[in-house]
Each structure stands twice: as C-alpha cells, then as structure tokens.
Design a protein around this nucleic acid. Structure first.
Lengths: 337, 337
DNA sequence: CTGTTAGCGCGTTCAG
DNA sequence: CTGAACGCGCTAACAG
C-alpha cells in the first residue's frame, strides 16, 4: 500500500496531523506559510488521500453507481459518456453494473448498493423486471436514485426520458405523409415502457389520419436476427400491400432491410422504413432509412446533473424534476427519387 | 445513512461486535446456533456491510478500475462486458474512467487511482499518450495493472492483445488471393501500437507475394468521415488501378464504401474491401465487405482474470503472463458472383 | 466458543 | 493559528 499519508507528512514537517489535514483542505484557519510547506511536500511525495478513510469519516463516497441492462448498445454507451463527463467535472467516480436484462442480477446489484458504496444511482431497469420491491428497499436507505430511459413509476423520484409517444406518432406520420397506407409496426419487449409509448404513438397517428389499426401488422421481434428476418419476410409475403415499416428498435430495421432485399422489394420505392436508432448503424446502412435518434448523451448528462445536484444539496429528488428530452427525426440525404 | 451496522446487530442480540462480524463471515470459531441467530437478524434488518470501513481495515477494496479511451465503440463496450462479467463473479466492483484519447485526462485519472481506491487497473492507453511517467508512478504504488489492446511496453506487466501483425498479413493475403494486385491501406493514428502492427503485416504480405510496396497507397485517416471519404475518393481517382482496400478500422471501411459507391466502383467486383470491425457495423453494411473481428469480449475476460488472480494471490503480474488472442477473419455470406 | 482491545486514515470537535 | 483526542464501521490479535 501507499504509505504516504497524513501522518507521514506531519512527521516530516513537524506538524500535527490535524494541521496537515486542514492545510490540504485550504482551511482558513491555517497560515499561508504552512499551507505552502504542506502542499509542496504533498506534491513532492505524490500524496493522494485515502478515499475510503475519507468516505468512512464523512459518510460521503463521491461515487455514483450506474445500473443498466447492457453497455454494448449505442444508446447506453453514449449515456455513460454523458454521465462520466458530468461526474468527472464534479469530482465523482462512476461504478458500473450490468444487469443483462436479468431480474435476479438487478436485485443482487441493488442489494450491494445498499451498503453505502455510492451516494447516488442512475438506473435503467431491466426488461425482465416486473417487481419493484428491491428498488423500494434501495430507496429506503441512503442513495438517491434517478431513472433514465427505462423508468420505474412506482418510485417517487426524477426520471429522464424521451418523448416516445410523440416520436412514435411522428414516425408514423412521416410514413403516412410519404404516401404509406399499410404500415407495419415492429415492437420489442412489450413489457418496456418505452415500447408501449411508441406503439401508442403509432396507433394515435393511424387514427388521426383515418387509417385502420390492423393487429396483424404488429410484430413482436423478440427472437434473434434470423428469426426476426424470417418473421418479417413472412409478414411481407402474406401482406404484400405493406408499404411502410416502423421499427421500434434498430435491430428490427436491419432485419426489415434484409427481408426487403431478400424479397426484391425496393427501399424506399416499394417499402419505406423508419426506425429508432439505438445502435447507430442504420444511418450507415442505407440513405433510404429514416431514423429517430434519442439524445442519449444529453440524457446521461441531464440525469447525472439532477442526481449530483441533489447529492450536493443533500435534498431528496422530487418527481417534479423529471425531464423529457426530444428525439430527433433524422431524414438521410434525400434519396434520388 | 443506513444505521444497520454491526453495533446495532450486536446490541439487539446481546453479543459483541466481534462475534457478529465473525458469524457473518462464517468463521469456524462461532457456534452454529449463534451464526443462525446473527444471520437471521441481519437478513431481517437488511444489513449490508459498509464497504469503505471494510476496505479501510483490510486495505483491500474489491474494486478495479477500467481506464479506456471511450465506451462508445463496439470493441471497448464488449471488453467492458467481459470485464464486468469476470469481476461480478469474483465479487469485484468496476469503476470506469474515460480518457477521450486525452493525455491530460489520463494523467489525472491515474493520479486518483494512486489513492488506494482500486486494487487493480485494466487499461488501454490513449492515442495521444507518448510519455509514460504517470504510469510508472502508478506502478510504484499499490495497484496491479494489466494492459489490453492499447498497451504500454515501458511498464513491466502483462498485456492482453490480439495478433495484429498476423491479422494484417492475413487480411492482405486474403485480398491478394482474391486477385487484388493494387491494395491500398488505410491506417489510423500511426502512433498506436496496433496500427503499426497491422501495417507491418500488410507490408510483409505484399513482400511475400512479390507485390511492390507503394507508399502512395497508404492513407492516414485521421479526419472526420467526410474528409476521409474525400481522401479515399481522391486516391481512387488518382490511382484507378486500386482493386483492393485494407482498412485498419471500420470507420475507414465505411468511408471507402461510400467513396466507391460515389465513383460507381462495384464492390467487390472492381474493388474488394476488408476491414477490422471495431464498430460491428460493416458486417451489416454489405455482404461484400469482409471483416476481421477482434475477440473483444474474451480480451476483457482474460485481462480481468489475470488481474484478479494476481490480486487474490497478492503476487506481482509478470510480462510472461501476457496473452495474444486471435482475431477472426469473417467472410460474409458468399456474394452472388 | 466469545469478548476486549487496538487500530486502518481521515476529519472534526475542543483546548489552548 | 496549531495540537491532542475521538470515532466513522469494521477486522484481527490477544485473552479468557
């Protein structure tokens, strides 16, 4: 272990530990001269305070935990980016935990976090999670929580989300205005709040434009890519009138792309595709795919800001601090019509 | 703060703090009966040990730090996945720090980590980093370090890398065997070890197959996507004989793809492209792009395993424990010729 | 088998 | 302005 501690500095300078401690904290009750001496030696010996001793004493860890389903996803990794940025600026450290959409892991993780390891938590709940007892238990102990993207309404705290209903509406409207009359919707994990909201936006748009809602045009793409492609191919074969596809997640847009290519349906002449882009891939796939992008980086930043502000002020986080950011509909370079 | 601590348990059970502590650790010198009583109450009150007190006392944090350039990258996020997996299994926590390829941040981060916050560090050095003083300083204090992917040879420790020279050779050979005679190489950050190795593999393959090395066919793609696309377009225009492109990173393969499309060069009939895939995108772009994929997840796992094993055994990490994993050349579904 | 004691390194009284 | 003393919650050595 690193043996450069306050005691060592105090000995070398013939000062007491208390004075050294105060000097390093720029306490007003220490002479400028001693401050200089102390800081000089600290720098020379590469003194770094022991974070755990400090945390133990002050009951503050300067650490936040990020609990997310996975990291290998454009949305979440951008969010982490934003979180880390804000945390670093405020001198906080970031612990990361992946649930892999597994309920049991989520419970185990929240249990660790009860132990005072973190001052606050940023969380996106796993798709499997249906019970929220572990979150209530967590809330009962110290750490502040802010949910982002995948929220939990049972807990009274702030949430940072995107306008999924509106975006779903907008996406569908985009296809309708482009001339589509038979629009399929590919959703994922009906269990997730975000999927439901997007779906509702889809239905609302259909209704507003006087198009029928046909349940047969809604697919649940829970399988792997091959299975999804097969499902979509089957749908397009059975219902050749489908002229638009609204994919709730990017993976399904890619499967749609392959399905259309396989069937020789031209994109976008015969079938127009619009998709949420959480992978950042579709934008590169084909200029003809229109994407809706969540402001992942900003979501991370804003969620972290709310959390850190609450921690620093030692105030509870209120649901009224929730934020809804806007996704951006991104139409690729105009396709040669 | 959570006031369920050993003292509280001890009081309620009329036992000493020490006994409660031992019981919770399944010490052999505690009666089965008391163990039961203690554990029952601990479970009931949701006792979770204070991690910092324990760390302070035992001088072990059960935490590792991961220092990487960015997280929004298929390679690094998969690596984190592997790291988190191994860490979780061994009861370790994972702190994450992003350098954004910035030398000063890297220095600041390594300085924090001197403070005993972590037992070990997994690191991929920033592309900007040329001086390694901060890493030497870090090594002088406690934490064990293992480098992965972007290594630092000045530090005597284990590294987990991929066979970049061989892969570069193999990629070039693949193009040659497919009939290419004028192969361009797109590299990135000549400063990075991995880029150099791939480039050397390229040169070695050319030599072995008796093809000339033409420096004009090597581009450094450090700009943004548009700039890179322009550069490649210029190259392909100036040197129409180019019939193969070996991209060192995926971003450049995508730019190549767009450049070829812009010039009306058919892929793969006129130009064959092969690329390292660190984004996981190219594989979806076009079946005609052949990719070389680093086993990112395994790299993360193996690096973490080496690190944790050393920590647990309290033994220094030797360079001889280094590992070289193999990248996989992944030829997409045979393109209809 | 259990209790007492002594720190880990730091921040914060309370005295001077 | 500085020092002595205490305790955060936990573990480990030493007694019994």
């Amino acid at each position: 272990m690193n043996s450069v501690n306050l005691k060592r500095l105090a000995q070398e300078l013939n000062l007491s530990i208390a004075t050294v401690s105060r000097a390093l904290q720029d306490s007003y009750e220490v002479s400028a001269h001693t401050k200089e001496r102390v800081k000089a030696l600290a720098a020379e010996l590469n003194y770094e305070p022991n974070a755990y001793a400090s945390s133990l004493r002050r009951n503050i860890s300067k650490t936040i935990g990020v609990v997310i389903p996975e990291v290998n996803n454009h949305f979440f990794s951008l969010a982490i980016n934003g979180i880390e940025e804000v945390a670093r600026q405020s001198g906080y450290h970031v612990l990361i935990y992946l649930t892999h959409e597994d309920y049991d892991r989520e419970v185990a993780i929240t249990q660790y976090l009860t132990g005072g390891r973190v001052d606050g938590i940023l969380m996106s709940v796993a798709s499997e999670t249906q019970e929220f007892g572990h979150l209530l238990k967590l809330q009962a102990t110290k750490p502040a929580i802010v949910f982002f993207d995948r929220v939990c309404d049972s807990i009274a705290t702030a949430q940072v989300t995107t306008n999924d209903f509106e975006s779903g509406f907008q996406a569908t409207e985009h296809l309708i205005q482009a001339g589509c009359r038979h629009i399929a919707h590919l959703l994922v994990s009906g269990n997730l709040s975000i999927g439901r909201m997007r779906m509702q936006g889809y239905q609302a748009a259909l209704q507003q434009y006087g198009l029928p809602f046909d349940e047969a045009l809604v697919l649940d793409g829970n399988g792997n890519d091959e299975q999804n492609t097969a499902l979509i191919t089957a749908l397009l074969t059975a219902r050749p009138e489908v002229d638009g596809i609204f994919a709730s997640v990017e993976r399904l847009a890619i499967s749609s792309y392959h399905a259309c290519n396989g069937l020789g349906r031209a994109i976008p002449e015969q079938v127009k595709i619009i998709s949420f882009s959480n992978l950042g891939v579709a934008a590169l796939l084909d200029p003809a795919l229109t994407t809706i992008t969540q402001p992942a980086y900003e979501i991370g930043r804003e969620a972290a800001k709310i959390l850190l502000r609450a921690i620093e002020k030692k105030k509870p986080i209120l649901p009224t601090q929730s934020l809804v950011l806007k996704s951006e509909l991104f139409e690729r370079r105009s396709t040669a019509k």
